[in-house]
């Protein structure tokens, strides 16, 4: 089966949705799938973080996205991630360097995180990917 690796460096909804949609869809299709959350993307993995904003350039569309989620037309980004995790084929990695400079501890992170890794470890895991995306 193919493999996809995605790097996410933003905690905004307009970045999180495409990342988890592709990662979970891949996992549901039987692919190996992995997401590496780094820099501000790591904030989205904190237990106390509630993703509710879009990037500042796209504020005008924020209400539309919120309405789509609240109406049930779209699952929340975490619900999408959760369904991917249930397949057992979606791995979530948290960037160790980012955790260090943001002062985030392992116990602050959501249960969906499989491993805290550095750049070299993630590259080692991702090097045989068929598709690799950087979403920032």
């Amino acid at each position: 089966m193919p493999k996809i690796s995605i790097i996410v460096s933003s905690e905004k909804l307009d970045k999180l949705f495409p990342a988890v949609t592709l990662a979970t869809t891949a996992a549901v299709m039987g692919w190996e799938s992995e997401i590496f959350f780094t820099f501000w993307g790591l904030l989205a993995l904190k237990k106390d973080y509630e993703a509710k904003d879009v990037s500042s350039d796209y504020k005008v569309y924020e209400d539309g996205l919120r309405r789509a989620v609240n109406s049930g037309a779209m699952p929340s980004w975490l619900e999408i991630l959760e369904q991917g995790k249930k397949t057992g084929r979606l791995k979530v990695y948290a960037c160790s360097t980012t955790m260090s400079f943001l002062g985030v501890k392992a116990e602050d992170l959501l249960e969906y995180v499989d491993e805290i890794v550095g750049a070299a470890s993630f590259l080692g895991k991702a090097k045989d990917s068929d598709i690799n995306l950087f979403i920032s």
Binding site: T21, T24, T25, V28, A68, S71, G72, A73, M74, P75, I80, Q83
Partner: peptide
């Protein structure tokens, strides 16, 4: 119905 991508696929995969 009325669910956008990836809703239908995820619902089917659950079923």
């Amino acid at each position: 119905r009325y669910k956008s991508c990836p809703g239908p696929l995820l619902a089917l995969a659950e079923a």
